[in-house]
């Protein structure tokens, strides 16, 4: 027999957690390894029960957002997190993705949608409501036009640290805010910004994203 999908339930609502456990216990391919209410479980506690999937009912229960989302971290970290009973709010959804969730189930979903999401995520898929797929397409398209990718930025002669700074500068963050989010000193950020403006040949830091694009397009 195939290995069961181990599920760690971490829900603010105890009744919801107990009911989900009741439903999951009837599925032969799923095993609830631990249930916990309200307070946030530590990473060590979760890792200790060795789950495949962690089910949460609140964005607040997700680990804190990383300053710069580590894309490869998603595939590497073994524990996959699903949010359930979520509001139908794209901002909420994108925030969940940035915080590393790989499943998003709406509060208007059915109980069997939760089971299907656990199975899907357990098999390595990412699950979201179908109408959010379009949102993802649009979001990626927007990112692609806004922030040139690493390879193309390298062709302008920017270091990887400088490339990392471009979207942050473009978003209008101050040197101090950038320094805080990247754990650098303010003076270091100032130096980087100065060099970026020099390489792009512009005077205004708010023009960095646009200047990057125009240079890449050969204009």
């Amino acid at each position: 027999m195939e290995k069961k999908i181990g599920v760690f339930l971490q829900c603010q609502n105890r009744l919801a957690r107990e009911s989900i456990a009741r439903i999951l216990q009837k599925r032969s391919d799923i095993q609830v390894v631990h249930g916990r209410t309200a307070t946030s479980a530590s990473e060590e506690e979760i890792a200790g029960t060795n789950p495949d999937v962690v089910v949460l009912d609140s964005l607040q229960l997700l680990p804190e957002e990383e300053p710069v989302a580590p894309i490869r971290g998603l595939a590497e970290s073994r524990v996959k997190r699903i949010l359930i009973a979520m509001p139908d709010d794209p901002k909420h959804f994108l925030k969940a993705i940035r915080r590393g969730a790989v499943g998003y189930v709406l509060c208007d979903a059915s109980a069997s949608d939760v089971v299907a999401a656990i199975r899907g995520v357990g098999q390595g898929d990412a699950i979201c409501p179908p109408h959010y797929v379009r949102l993802l397409f649009e979001y990626i398209a927007l990112l692609a036009t806004r922030y040139p990718n690493r390879q193309t930025k390298a062709s302008i002669g920017l270091t990887s640290r400088e490339q990392q700074l471009i979207p942050l500068i473009g978003r209008g963050l101050t040197n101090k805010q950038i320094a805080g989010s990247l754990n650098l000193s303010e003076q270091t950020v100032k130096n980087h910004v100065h060099r970026i403006l020099g390489k792009l040949g512009i005077g205004d830091r708010l023009d960095v994203s646009e200047a990057c694009e125009t240079q890449l397009l050969g204009m």
């Binding site: 609502n13 009744l15 919801a16 107990e18 009911s19 989900i20 009741r22 439903i23 359930i84 009973a85 189930v105 709406l106 509060c107 208007d108 979903a109 059915s110 109980a111 949608d113 939760v114």
Partner: peptide
Amino acid sequence: RPRLIRELVMATISD
């Protein structure tokens, strides 16, 4: 409401 919580309560009661 919402539907998901209703279905979860239903799962408990119908047992």
